[in-house]
Structures are given as C-alpha cells and as structure tokens.
Design a protein around this nucleic acid. Structure first.
Lengths: 256, 256
DNA sequence: CGATCGTTTGATCCGCATCAAGATAGGTGG
DNA sequence: CCACCTATCTTGATGCGGATCAAACGATCG
C-alpha cells in the first residue's frame, strides 16, 4: 500500500528498531505501533509553526527537517537539523508552555510517525522510554554546550572543520571522501554563520588539506586536521568527534 | 548538630520540598532521605573536575556553583551557574561516557546533598523523578537555545539587558531595585563576554534607563527596556523573561 | 538560450577582543 | 584613623573577524 511506498521499512518494523524505543516490552511496542500514525510532509512545507500548540510528537523515518526561528526583522535562524530516527517535539511535550518553540520545515520530502501528545504522556510512560528520552536530551544538551563554546573560542574555519569531523563520526562517513548531506547554505545557517563567511572558511580549509568541491569533501592532511579541530576544544572525551578522532586517526594516518 | 548549622532547613525537609522530587510517594522520599549524604564544599574549591568519573549526583541546598571548561590555551569558559534547588551531574549520570563534562567550582561555601550514581540509577527510578528530570532538561535545552540565538543576533548590551530581565523573572526580584547575585566578572563570563565588554555594555544601558551602580541595579525606562530586550528576541512565549515581561510590564508602567 | 538558484569573491563597516592604564572599594596592619 | 594592598572594575586605543552590501560566477532547468 501507500505506506510501503513512503516508508523505508514498514511502520511496524520502524518502531521495533527505533533507538528511542530500545528496551521496551513487546506489548509496549505493539501499543506504539497501534497509535503511531504515518505523516507525510512534502519538501519546503511547514510541519508545525512556532507558537502552535503541541498536539503530537514525531519520529522521523525519512527525509530532513530544519528547525528555525524568525527574528523580528525577518531573518531566520536555524536551530537544528533533524533526520531519520530523530524526534520532533519532545521539548514541546515536556515543556510548560504547551507550544512549539520553533518552526519545523521539511527540507526533503519527509516521512514520519506521529503520536498524540496526550496519549503519549498518559499511557506511554514506560521506564524504558523515559530512560531513552533522558539519554537523548542529555546528549543534546552536551552537544549544544559544545557548539556554544566553539562559537565563542573558534574561528569560522575551525568551527566548520569540527562540524565536518562530527559529520563523519555520526554518519560513519569516510573522511577521505564523502558528500555533504545538505546544501552549503543550510549548513552555514546551521553553524550560525553567513553563507559568505562559510564560503571563505572553505577557502581557508582548502589551504589546510580539507578540500571541498561542490558537495564532495576529502580530508587529506590529517595531522593538520587534528591540530585545527575538535582536538583543540575543551570538551575532550565529551565530544563525539574528538573520541571518534582518537579512534580513527591512527588508522587513517596509516593510509596516508 | 552540624547538619542543622549547614543546611537552611534539615536535609529531610529539604528533600521533601525539593522541586526535583515533587510528586513522589512518601516511601520514595524516605528512601531518598536515607541515601542523601550531606556534602560541603568551601568557597573556591572544586567539587568535581571535567573528566572525573561520575560517582554522585548533587542537589544544591545553599551556595553557588560555577560550571566551566578549560581551553587548551589556559582560558576558562563558564558554561553555567547553579544555586539552591539546582542539580549537578545529571547530564553526567545519563550520558554515555560516565565522566563529568565540566569542572564544578564553589563560588560561595556550598552545601549540597549527594546521591550515589548507581543507587540512583538502579533503585530510584520512579516515574515522577523521570518526569521531573525530563522537565528540567527540557527547560535547560530551551534556555540554551535561546541564549545561543541571542548571542548571534544581539549586541552585548542587549544580551545583558535580557539577562537582567531573566534574573528578575526567575528570582522574583523587583526590577526597580535589586542587587546582582554574583560578581560582575562572573556574570560577564556566564554571558560569554569579556569583562571589558560587559563594563561598556553597562555604560550603554545607563543611557537607556538601566542604571547599575556597584551591585545595585535599577531599571527606570521600561518602554526602552521593552524595546531593547527579550521582547525583541524570536522566542516569544518560549522565553521566560518575555512571558514575565508581558505579565509585569503593565503593573510596572503604572508605578512609573 | 535566458532564467533562476546556489555559491564565490571583493570592498567596507561594526562590534568585540585584546592590550594597557587608571580608578574604586574592601580589607589589613601599623 | 590612615596608609597600603589587593581584588574588582572602568576607560582608552588598536586590531581582527565576521556581517553586510554588491557583483560576478557556475550549474541546472524549462
């Protein structure tokens, strides 16, 4: 049916394998499968708007969502980019205001599952879900702090290099050669810089062995990368990119 | 006994009234009272260091704690300031690395209750605690995003004005006349700016009716305040200071 | 083939950091 | 009570990084 066409896997399988629902009883998963409604949002459309009451929370199956704010003078600020297996609306559900804090816009065609807020709050309260949510939020807090710190002590080029590193780490990409998952303008706003600044940062990284041509990225001079990126930030072992770097650098150096 | 001298209230009463433990069964509270050990950390001493294994989580009863990182070149970055009723180490407990992400330093003499990490994770898992934790972390995420956004679109003076507003809102201070709870240098680092910049921002605010002399603050020109602070940020109803402003401005204007 | 979108490059401006001196206040000992 | 000291803060001069405005470039598409 339609669902088969939209989803990467069936909704039931998707729920069974979702990291957010890891550790749940089968009965709980079945109840989630019953309540999870497929939800489709085409490219460029708005999934929900800042200020809207929180009616559902979403689990993304396919596609990419941009969260952003509008400033009073009409500019937009990208606060996050979410994709498969990420959630949408958690902070809305657990927040006190009952409204969404950001606009959510589909970058691609987006497929998600939606769960009614009330049902979820009242009935779906297993210890396992709470645990998973706590782990997710904790991770988000750590990463936010890390990025906030980077913005205050690093140059645009360094921030970008760190971002590319984290991208490799989180999406298991090969640093020697991978494709940017989003447009450069989207990444620029995601990193809180202007497209022009982003572009100039790319030029600087090129001098240091990180070559970006179109959407294609290849990182050559690894010692330099090590010197200029997360290895320099003060989060050390708290930073996923740093941990990943520690693990992968020796292997990568051998390839060099 | 000693505990009476250190704590504002007895540890038992403190636990019974702690927001974090709201909604718990009496039996759960009693178990917390049994396991919560008083913990004293004198001014300027370090409670735990970044990289230390997370052994406990803490609930502050008295005093102020600064969370910070060290950059590779020796500078320090204040990531948060916590005081009575705040927690310490939650992200450490729920994080995957099992280590603290920041240094925690006592600004004042600090009194706290500590709970062993393992006991807390294994035995203290009531739905109510999880709920409270989720609400706390959600709030923290929202505020972090808000501040990150402010740093990218506001000037130092505006950021400071917003901070003062939030201070009034969260600590129920009278905007017409209150005392800064921390030193100016601490607030400056908390806001991610240099002390010099902070000082110059004060001068600018003075022209706009926000007068700071020593630790004393008085906000006079409310329309100007409204124009220059959280009312301008894009979080609107998600921002506590904005909500508070909407509620309190009419009353304050009458006093003017 | 022009039109549009996404990106690059150039010139200029502004805000904050930095470096360097003063100023003020709180605390101590003579 | 005053002189001294240190901690905390203020003020001034300068430089750098990123935002802004403006224009050109390249790719894709009807």
């Amino acid at each position: 049916m339609l669902q088969r066409l939209l989803f990467d896997t069936t909704p039931a399988d998707f729920i069974k394998n979702a990291p957010l629902f890891r550790g749940l009883q089968d009965s709980e998963k079945n109840s989630l499968i019953k309540m999870g409604r497929p939800c489709f949002c085409p490219r460029k459309k708005i999934l929900f708007r800042q200020g809207d009451p929180v009616t559902h929370f979403y689990l993304i199956n396919k596609g990419t969502v941009r969260l952003f704010h509008e400033t009073p003078d009409g500019h937009e600020i990208t606060t996050d980019i979410r994709s498969a297996h990420d959630t949408l609306g958690i902070t809305g559900i657990y927040g006190v205001t009952g409204i969404h804090h950001s606009h959510a816009e589909a970058i691609d065609d987006v497929v998600a599952l939606e769960f009614p807020r009330d049902w979820f709050q009242n009935c779906a309260h297993s210890a396992a879900i709470s645990q998973n949510m706590l782990a997710t939020l904790t991770h988000r807090i750590t990463m936010q702090k890390l990025e906030a710190e980077q913005r205050s002590i690093m140059t645009a080029a360094q921030i970008l290099a760190c971002y590319l590193q984290r991208l490799c780490a989180s999406q298991k990409l090969n640093p020697r050669n991978f494709e940017l998952p989003y447009s450069k303008s989207l990444i620029a706003t995601r990193l809180g810089m202007k497209l022009e600044t982003f572009s100039r940062a790319l030029a600087k990284l090129r001098e240091q062995g990180i070559i970006v041509k179109g959407k294609n990225v290849s990182i050559h001079d690894l010692p330099n990368v090590e010197k200029n990126t997360c290895a320099q930030c003060s989060y050390k072992e708290s930073c996923p990119a740093y941990r990943s770097l520690r693990e992968t650098l020796p292997a990568l150096k051998k390839c060099a």
